[in-house]
């Protein structure tokens, strides 16, 4: 009985630790700039004020949101298509080429993005991609591929041989097997890879910071940082911007929490 009480109390304390900073952010975003300084910050505002969200949206926020969405969507499509192709070749089309390639990707898991960012900046500049959304998309895809391929390889390996054989007997070729057998069967793994990379790319800060400078091309994390520099004293507006930047993930959390969380740990759990 005593133990149960202690465990429940600790559980509630941790809930407060997790939730309260986020609640605080919501409270602040609903205050006017004057009441931010005069009000009691730990309580919700007496008269919630939605003007901060309007202000943020009027400051070009929609444009940053669109930039982030373009980067994320194009990257995810490329990652899914390319890593599925590669994983299928590694599992089914065994040979020196596929196995060398797989080793290279596995080794690539150890390369931290930070270690490559300086030459990447020079490379992107030389290739003429600097200050385009491609400057963010291409490296994002490249660094997402190793883990995505590993996850899909592990998944496709579990497809029973008999299924391939049954379809081969019916005259289905290499590409037929890929699109009519492997693709439909890998949907859960593809989903996880997609979610995992969406979260990573949506939140990425280093690539846009180093590889773009045009304010019009900012993705959300970079826009938030600039926003902070411009409106240092307008804390309610910054808090509103932070909340708006997480809207896709908040929506995903509400409608598909289990899938979102499973995707975030794709390849790491089990």
């Amino acid at each position: 009985m005593l133990r149960k009480t202690i465990v429940t109390t600790l559980g509630i304390i941790w809930a407060i630790v997790s939730l309260y900073p986020i609640l605080y952010m919501v409270f602040e975003s609903l205050r006017t700039q004057e009441t931010y300084i005069t009000g009691l910050p730990w309580l919700p505002p007496a008269h919630p004020y939605l003007g901060n969200f309007q202000d943020v949206l009027a400051q070009g926020f929609v444009g940053y949101f669109v930039n982030s969405a373009i980067v994320a969507i194009i990257s995810i499509v490329m990652i899914l298509v390319f890593s599925l192709f590669a994983a299928y070749a590694i599992v089914r089309l065994d040979g020196w080429f596929s196995s060398r390639a797989f080793t290279l990707f596995l080794a690539g898991l150890a390369i931290p993005i930070q270690a490559a960012i300086i030459p990447l900046y020079i490379l992107i500049d030389k290739m003429g991609f600097y200050d385009t959304l491609w400057a963010i998309i291409l490296p994002s895809v490249a660094f997402a591929l190793p883990l995505s391929i590993l996850i899909l390889v592990n998944f496709i390996r579990d497809v029973p041989k008999e299924l391939y054989e049954a379809m081969s007997i019916d005259g289905v070729g290499t590409f037929g097997l890929l699109f009519r057998l492997v693709l439909p069967l890998s949907r859960p793994a593809m989903m996880a890879v997609g979610i995992y990379n969406f979260v990573q790319i949506w939140n990425n800060f280093l690539f846009p910071l180093v590889l773009t400078s045009n304010p019009k091309l900012q993705t959300l994390p970079l826009a938030l940082q600039h926003f902070e520099g411009q409106y240092t004293m307008n804390v309610p507006a910054i808090m509103a911007a932070v909340i708006l930047s997480a809207v896709p993930l908040i929506i995903a959390y509400i409608i598909g929490r289990k899938q979102l969380l499973a995707g975030m740990t794709a390849g790491f759990s089990r």
């Binding site: 590669a86 596929s98 290279l104 990707f105 030459p119 020079i122 490249a142 591929l145």
Partner: peptide
């Protein structure tokens, strides 16, 4: 089979080598 494998792996390999491996070696240089 080998040729199809190369074809399927090409997009991933090219992207990963150009934007992953080359910059890593570039940092050493």
């Amino acid at each position: 089979t080998q040729r199809i494998a190369i074809l399927l792996l090409a997009p991933s390999l090219i992207l990963f080598i150009v934007f992953g491996i080359v910059p890593m070696l570039g940092a050493v240089y």
